[in-house]
Computed example of a mutant assay.
Amino acid sequence: MDVMEAVAIGAAGVAAGGMNAVVGSGTLITFPTLLAFGYPPVLANVSNNVGLVPGVLSAAYGYRRELRGQRRRLIRFGAASLLGGLVGALLLLRLPDAAFRRIVPVLILTACVLVLVQPRLNRWMKARQDQRGAARTDGGVPMWLGVLGTGVYGGYFGAAQGVLLMGMFGAVLRDDLQRLNAAKNVLASLVNGIAAVVFIAVADVDWAVAALIAAGSTAGGLLGARVGRRLPPTALRAVIVTVGVTASALLIARS
């Protein structure tokens, strides 16, 4: 790894950490960056997941004030996230590399669509919150299963799992959106964390790549939690979608 490659991967980690704190989908920055430097898709995904764990943890820490009073919710949904992340990570390791190469372009493009529709989703969520008031509910078994499914997706690949969580939360849970975003960061950190434990135990990890992404995403996560709301969301979404479509094209061309 030369200096320019290291700088590029570290910078992608900073961008991903900030995006994960505010929007989600940071994987759509780091994963394509690794592909562009020639890393095999599964190795890139595994190393990226391990590297992003400190970033999502720092984002959750940055939203610690909004987490007050959510202990019961986090324990309940945290169990679903841990189980889902474990299943997703095992699926990644058990399915053949060729299956990952075929599936991931579809997942990336789906994530790009979710990022594009997020403004409309946010408006819809806000309207539902205004109509239904401030009382909270846990959403019952369907919500728990939805969080479980999102965890499986996150353990397998992970791009836009935060968007999926916020969509479900906004549709069902009656609470302030910033508090829901804080809960989303915690659940994403659990999914990434359990998947990282599995990958470290039984998979090949490029530790130089993981360390660069970890350092960058930690700084980006803290920065995103502090100033992310001031960034122009349209520009962020444009970058995410452009990089995601490019990554899909790269994978399709190599398959």
Rank of each mutant, 00 (worst) to 15 (best):
I200E: 13
G133E: 14
D2I: 09
L52D: 11
Y153S: 11
T150V: 11
G149I: 06
V205R: 10
G221R: 12
N185I: 01
L177H: 14
G62N: 13
Y63M: 07
F37N: 06
I103A: 08
T137P: 05
T234S: 10
V163P: 09
G146M: 06
A210N: 08
A6C: 09
F100S: 12
R136M: 05
L35Y: 03
A238T: 08
Y61H: 08
L164M: 11
V3T: 13
R226I: 09
G146F: 06
L28I: 06
L109N: 10
A12G: 02
G154I: 02
L82S: 05
R65Q: 12
A8D: 03
G18A: 14
A12S: 07
I29T: 04
V104N: 03
L164N: 07
L145K: 11
P233I: 03
R64Q: 03
G17H: 11
A235P: 02
G140P: 08
D175M: 08
L165S: 03
V202D: 15
R229P: 13
I213A: 11
A235Q: 07
L222Q: 15
L86D: 15
L114W: 03
G162T: 11
T33R: 03
A80S: 06
Y39I: 07
A188P: 03
G78T: 00
F157S: 08
D206S: 05
V241R: 06
L28C: 05
G18K: 09
V239S: 02
G62L: 10
